[in-house]
Simulated scan of single mutants.
Amino acid sequence: MTQSIAIIGGGIVGSTAAYYLSEFNKKDDLDITVFDHGVGQATKAAAGIISPWLSKRRNKSWYELAKDGATLLSSIAEKTNMSKDIYNQCGTIITRNKLEDISNLYDLAIERSNDTDTIGEIYKLTPDEVKRHIPIIDSNIPGLLVTGGARIKGDKYTDHLLKIAKNNGVSVVNKEITINEKANVVCDGEEIQFDKIILATGAWTKNVLAELPLEVDVRPQKGQLIELSINHINMSDEDMPVLMPEGESDFIPLGNGRLIVGASHENDKDFDLNPDSDVIDDLLNSATSLLPSLSAENLIRVKIGTRAYTSDFAPFFGEIPGYEKILVGSGLGSSGLTTGPLVGKILAEMATDNLSTDIDKYRKPIENYIKLIK
């Protein structure tokens, strides 16, 4: 008997879920449809850094999710032959003003390397060594190199996995949908029943579930980043490490003479997708503090997306209380490119009763974030 599965949202979670479901569908017993409206999607606007190992967040569940997410992402990239312009394990350099802080980060990295090989090698760098690795910057601060760190382009990642999924028989519908009071999908006024629904709508989760008696703890956060041309600098930047400088925005050299700087975190903008001049100025100032030859003339474009956050900044995923056929993953925040692939894989496994992982090590109770109103 064929099982019908809808995936709502084609971002980092939805595209990964679609990919894994298409891989599970060797017996053609799954009918999989992705509904992807795409407007404002955080993943499509994002170019991010995969380097969770030096985070000092106290949420141990989040760290386990991020650590294993980074490992899974590396595996997906290798298995699906992702090109370097999608995923590049180019290394991450974290800088600090004080040598003592670098030593503390080094100790933390060594400790956490005992739990994962994906972190790679770890090296303390002098200011001159930092500049040798990232010659475009003009900075005199020490750093720490983690060779397992990577950069990823969210839009190209989703396109890559959805292309594989479509080749494996997954349907993609580029339309906005709602979920009605019967917990069925409504598209263009037509009610469609599915055996399972994977809800991967990020910041829009509360809106999509508005007709159901649920209390949902998700809020939107605006993120803006800038893409700059660095063609005036005559050097190869394809495999240059990404930079996480203290007190400044992240630097992500993309190759082909392009540099991403960002992203911002704004909690009071709702779903606004218009660029803010003051934010763009701050990002440019951050860029010129490390690369003085840049100016506003190097600005190519501004990319804007809306992230999903919860009140305690923790992600949530699993079966929605009271609606066993709806699975949800949301609240990933600024670490979504790292944690999203693992959440998508887990939801695909749950939808097909194929779960082999103890997922409670990755999450707090889902009832903390989504509750049935009785």
Rank of each mutant, 00 (worst) to 15 (best):
E121W: 07
I300P: 00
S295Q: 04
E238I: 15
D270I: 10
L99Y: 14
I86Q: 07
D217E: 01
I304C: 02
I198C: 06
V173T: 10
T71F: 05
V186E: 04
W53S: 04
N184E: 12
L327H: 01
E129A: 04
G262T: 00
Q221K: 15
N174W: 09
P220F: 11
S75V: 07
I177A: 00
V130P: 04
Y19C: 12
K175L: 11
S311I: 13
T288L: 15
G331W: 09
E215W: 04
L30G: 00
S4Q: 15
R363V: 14
I359R: 02
E23P: 07
A17P: 06
E248G: 09
N207T: 15
L228E: 01
G223T: 11
I164N: 03
S356M: 08
F271Y: 13
F317V: 02
M350E: 02
N140W: 02
T158V: 14
K67L: 04
A296D: 11
I7A: 13
I359N: 03
I346F: 15
S139N: 10
K60V: 14
I260V: 14
F271A: 03
L105K: 03
N285V: 06
A348W: 07
N168R: 08
A46Y: 03
A200V: 03
A42N: 09
G40Y: 09
I370T: 05
G262K: 07
N168P: 06
Y369K: 05
T338Q: 04
S4F: 02
P142Y: 00
A183L: 01
N234I: 08
E100Q: 14
V146T: 15
P315T: 12
I119P: 09
N368M: 07
W62V: 09
R219Q: 12
A308N: 02
Y87D: 06
N25T: 07
P365R: 06
I252T: 10
L299H: 09
T95P: 06
Y106T: 10
G154Y: 08
I7T: 08
G169V: 00
I326P: 06
G262F: 04
N368D: 15
K79S: 11
P365W: 02
S113G: 12
K156Y: 13
S61C: 12
Y309E: 02
P245H: 07
K196L: 11
M244Q: 08
N168F: 01
D68R: 12
S229E: 13
V218F: 06
L144G: 02
S236L: 11
K371H: 03
I94C: 04
E215Q: 11
R307Q: 04
G305C: 09
P220A: 12
G169F: 05
T118C: 14
S249I: 07
A203Q: 09
L290K: 05
T205S: 10
D195W: 00
I373A: 12
D276L: 11
D217T: 12
E181A: 09
L291P: 04
N285W: 02
G169P: 07
A308I: 12
N114S: 15
L347T: 10
P52W: 12
A296N: 11
L273H: 06
N88M: 07
N168V: 14
I260K: 08
I260E: 00
A109D: 05
L299E: 00
D159F: 08
T33F: 01
N88Q: 10
I93M: 09
T118F: 09
V343D: 05
L327V: 13
R96F: 05
C187N: 04
T2P: 14
Y309M: 13
Y106P: 03
E78A: 14
N114F: 01
S74V: 05
P275Y: 08
